[in-house]
Amino acid sequence: MSDSTAIAHGAEAGAHHEHPPYQRHHFETVNQQFDATNFAMWLFLLTEIMFFGGLFTAYLILRNWYYPAFVEGSHQLSIFWGTANTTVLIISSFTMAMSVWNAQMRRKSALLLCLVLTFILGLVFLGIKGIEWHEKWVKFHVPGLHYSDQTFLNPASDHEVYAEYHDKPLAPDMASKAQQYFFLYFAMTGMHALHMVIGICILGFMIVRAKAGAYTSGHVTFVENFGLYWHFVDIVWIFLFPLLYLISRHQ
């Protein structure tokens, strides 16, 4: 364990210990502080895995129950926008990783640039998500609020999608289950977007702090831990993208 490096010292030595200003009083060394907060962040991500885990479980089960409805539901998503968004998010993950590197190297302006890029890419992602959600609204595919089975009872009515997939009409019973697909689509992308929004807010805060030079004086813990969060959100999307957009393209 890394705390074996913790050095026991008497009270008088402790009083005159030279600590960097960012070291909290209850840690023995900066390394211990870094290890502890880093580990805490990982544990938090563990809870996030389980948080999304519930949704993934629901998706898996209901998809198997209402397979045809889920297939036709996913045909309503645009692979173009989905791919674009995946690319945006992957690049933002890259710029985030570079932010951590720049902070470690104490390159302030490069760090700022990378953080701002990440911030912008995050907004772009949400913008594209907004376009997609808007399209769902227009097509009455927002279950609970603005919904109709029409597309699945009569796929030919939706010319664009029909031209590509030639979906067969579903029996009314099955067609009504397409809303389960959209429930989960909105729950999953919504939860993901909520995490993005939180992340973007923290990014904004970090940009202000980075301008003041808070992360380029050797204390990169915050940037590093936020990076973990951001990458995690990216990973969730890496799974959402094939599950929601891709795997049913051919069925």
Binding site: S93, F94, M96, A97, G227, L228, H231, F232, D234, I235, I238, F239, F241, P242, L243, L246, I247, S248, R249, H250, Q251
Partner: peptide
């Protein structure tokens, strides 16, 4: 195998992010 391939690739991508970015 569409689903299998898509998920396998997702797992590889996620592993890359976890191993290197994280």
């Amino acid at each position: 195998f569409n689903a299998v391939v898509a998920l396998a690739i997702a797992v590889i991508k996620a592993s890359l992010v976890v191993l290197f970015f994280m």
